[in-house]
């Protein structure tokens, strides 16, 4: 069973999106991932995620220009959930 947090930062000024994402990440439990709605690619976030041990997937969004999925690199359950999502299966 996986669940997700969704965070819409598409209308926030820098550096609020990054701050909110970093504040939410510690709440992720095993199997959970963070789904971020953004209006542009948050490039500075990626190296922070790498340092903090998270993996991410960025893709074009439907309602907003960019969607990012973030999960702990060691969390195979969350990774599988993202993989299923990519395959078009419900999460």
């Amino acid at each position: 069973m996986t669940s997700k947090y969704q965070l819409d930062v598409s209308q926030l000024e820098p550096c609020e999106p990054l701050e909110r994402i970093l504040a939410t990440l510690p709440q992720l439990q095993t199997g959970e991932y963070l789904h971020v709605l953004h209006r542009m690619e948050p490039y500075p976030l990626y190296s922070i995620l790498e340092k903090e041990g998270y993996t991410w997937l960025t893709q074009a969004g439907q309602e907003v220009p960019i969607e990012i999925y973030i999960w702990r690199s060691t969390d195979t359950l969350a990774a599988a959930a993202i993989k299923d999502r990519q395959a078009g299966q419900p999460l």
Partner: peptide, 26 residues
């Protein structure tokens, strides 16, 4: 933005705990 970015970076270099020292926002 640069001040915030560099402080954020400095903090990440020293700890895995994200909010150890309160970084001022922009």
């Amino acid at each position: 933005f640069l001040v915030w970015l560099h402080l954020q970076n400095q903090q990440l270099e020293i700890t895995k705990v994200i909010s150890m020292v309160k970084i001022p926002n922009m």
